[in-house]
Write a protein that binds this DNA or RNA. Sequence first.
DNA 1: TGTCCGCTTAAGGCTCGCTTAAGACAGCAC
DNA 2: GTGCTGTCTTAAGCGAGCCTTAAGCGGACA
Lengths: 219, 219
Amino acid sequence: MRILLVEDDASLGEGILTSLKPEGYTVDWVRDGPSALHALTHESFGLAVLDLGLPRLDGLEVLRQLRGAENPTPVLVLTARDSVTDRIAGLDAGADDYLVKPFDVAELKARLRALLRRSFNRPQPALEYRGITLDPASQSVTWNGQTVSLQRKEFILLHELIAQPGRVLTRDKLQQVLYGWGEEAESNVLEVHIHHLRKKFFPELIRTVRGVGYLVDKA
Amino acid sequence: MRILLVEDDASLGEGILTSLKPEGYTVDWVRDGPSALHALTHESFGLAVLDLGLPRLDGLEVLRQLRGAENPTPVLVLTARDSVTDRIAGLDAGADDYLVKPFDVAELKARLRALLRRSFNRPQPALEYRGITLDPASQSVTWNGQTVSLQRKEFILLHELIAQPGRVLTRDKLQQVLYGWGEEAESNVLEVHIHHLRKKFFPELIRTVRGVGYLVDKA
DNA sequence: TGTCCGCTTAAGGCTCGCTTAAGACAGCAC
DNA sequence: GTGCTGTCTTAAGCGAGCCTTAAGCGGACA
């Protein structure tokens, strides 16, 4: 799961980063509003953690613009302020959850999990690539109208690749997506899954970048 | 039927809780305005019982924001005040019914039933799927004309699944529907209910998505 | 041509969910 | 209260299919 962290405070950001990585999240970290907006509108994230007190462009404003553009990415808002009006403002602007600083990292993790669980249930747009349709809602895959049956890890892998066409995903990153940081796979599991995917669709679907990783070409 | 109870007074809340549970309602209880708003906008309830005198965010305000967001959940308002203007304000803000403290629990129950009956008469048509008809009003089920007898939890589960065909409902989500947030089931109850449903109809009715949840295929 | 990296295949282990049956529990009549 | 009835939960055993492993092969790069 790819997460965008928007936080201008260096040490807090560092802290969140290092505590989320072991959970298996892939975290991208930006420090100001415009970067956040750009990232969210140009790449695909499963979730965003957004600090409200940002330089250059306020977090609330980021959120408003995001929602204004009908971007459904779940957002968890961080704030130092705890007034009720702030809280309401955040939720009004389209936040999905709310956490007041200082907070416990364990609680952040718990809320992220809850948020992800919930967002699984929302209409997530189906991904489409060269006639392959991935529908997260039903966990089903079709290719030119035909249903293709994928195993869970295969689905996750393909989804990750297709979500970012033209971008090489390193083996490390992909393994992270499948297993988190805990146990590095010592075997060639990844290759096997890739192999299965190529077999179920067509070999050229996934290109190998020797020594680095895999990618799906830009449509 | 899942109900959200919004009440800051501990003993009153406790009382309502214990008197509603035996009626077969699944009751979730929060104690302040922001939590109530959050719950109502992020989860689905059949009905809310809302105390107006709340800390941090007034009940009326909760109601206004809820309706502002076009949330149609039926709301029964509780209040200590009995002035006519208060009453008007409540109904204006979008309350569906009104009860003045102190009240008799029996009356609360009666009004809830009435409210549910009314809201069920709105566009809550009987669900139909592959010859299976679910009538929420009478909690009865027929399959190709034959009556099928379901237990309560089975009905709830099937209803939830059929209401969103083609979409995977996670185990978490389904457990929430059955039990609210309170007690997480530690056993395999869910699987057992699913099993019973498959047995009473046909096995392919409910498809398993390993590691995620269950779904009913799009008709 | 040698070395390394990734591909391919097939076999086993292990996890998850299915199935069953029995016991807990609540509702109800007496 | 006591007993009866039907619903719901628990637990244990089992089986399918997912995932991993490992070994052999082939192609890429020096």
